[in-house]
Computed example of a mutant assay.
Amino acid sequence: MEHIDVAVIGGGQSGLATAHALLRRGLRPVVLEASDHAAGSWPHYYDSLTLFSPARYNSLPGMPFPGADRDRYPHRDEVVTYLTAYADRLDAEIRTGCRVTAVRRTGDGFTAKLEGGRLSARAVVAASGTFGRPHRPALPGLEEFTGQVLHAADYRSPAPFSGRRVVVVGAGNSAVQIAAELAETAHVTLATRGPVKFAAQRILGRDLHFWTVRTGLDTAPLGRFLARPPAQPVLDDGRYRAALAAGRPDRRALFTGAVGPKLLWPDGPREEVDAIVLATGYCPDLPYLAPLHGALDDEGTPRHREGLATAVPGLAFVGLEWQRSLSSNSLRDVGRDADRVARRLAAHLARR
């Protein structure tokens, strides 16, 4: 069986940043990526996705995000190109098409079971993100609804929904962006449990991220005090608030049930709907850690403190929402968390 220093599971932004940090500490990581490319989930996001932070704040360690206009909001495809180039420049072994199905403790190290083989590692970093585990809440009547139901993970463009009646469920950035895009060619309702909360994209002529970085809010270690990640407001330059005010899309309280293709609204009669898009977020995608006692709680959520597993020495996480700070699972700060985890893993391995 092959023996390696550190197995980094996931070849997206978190895994690449972690590999960079481990290399700087003299360790030789092997990045195990299930897909055929080292760009994480970015190629699978919807076509119109743009970042909510300017290019200047979206660099991984050692390689600035390209482009002369540092204040533009990069498109999804720019991020894919950037991550691909970053992986190509990284002096680490990246194995694509290499899915990890289980990790088990072996002595004071780990054995990773792959589709087609096994390897042992002195340490493991879980950096597989959340895209593979869309959150599908138990909404009233959803099981009885006979129209199309899809998650935002499966949404690509408004073309298939032109002229149709669509309900988008969610109150976050993606929900509002998808609903507004669909409303240009379809009859769309944004269904939420409460009012949509907005935050100004620019304050005093500066992007909001300028202020969160300048004040230290972006990287303040608040994650340790949160029982669960708080809901984030929708970043808006005015266009989404105006779209909702104009009823394109309209906003309603969440439906209360369904009968066949019809939804039941709390403030009106039944209405036939063609499709429901669940923009309801994601959960950590870590089924391969189930054999490690104490790594996950009963809901599959990592048990950790600032990225270090609390009950499994040598296991770490990178890229979790609020792992340490507001920006932990973002391009702009995942490198900071990766460096902290790499430093602590290196110290752990040095003591063995």
Rank of each mutant, 00 (worst) to 15 (best):
H3K: 12
H3A: 02
D5T: 09
D5E: 08
A19T: 12
A21G: 08
L23A: 01
V30K: 01
V31C: 05
A39W: 03
H44M: 09
Y45T: 11
Y45F: 12
D47P: 01
A55R: 13
Y57C: 15
N58F: 15
L60W: 12
P64K: 08
D69I: 13
R70K: 15
D71S: 04
D71P: 01
V79C: 11
I94W: 07
G97N: 08
G97A: 14
R99M: 13
F110G: 09
A112W: 06
S120N: 12
A123D: 15
A126V: 09
S128N: 15
R133V: 14
A159N: 03
F161A: 11
S162Y: 00
I178P: 13
A183F: 10
H187A: 12
V188Y: 02
V188A: 07
L190A: 03
A191H: 02
R193A: 15
K197R: 11
I203C: 11
L204R: 00
R214V: 14
T215P: 07
A220F: 01
L222R: 00
F225H: 04
A227E: 14
V234F: 01
D237W: 00
R239D: 07
R248I: 04
D250F: 00
R252F: 04
R252A: 12
A253K: 01
T256V: 02
T256S: 02
G260W: 14
T280G: 11
T280M: 06
D285E: 11
P291Y: 02
P291F: 00
G294V: 11
T301A: 06
R303P: 05
E306Y: 02
E306A: 03
A311T: 12
E321D: 13
W322T: 12
R324A: 06
S327G: 02
R336V: 09
D337M: 03
R343K: 12
A346N: 05
L349R: 00
R351M: 05
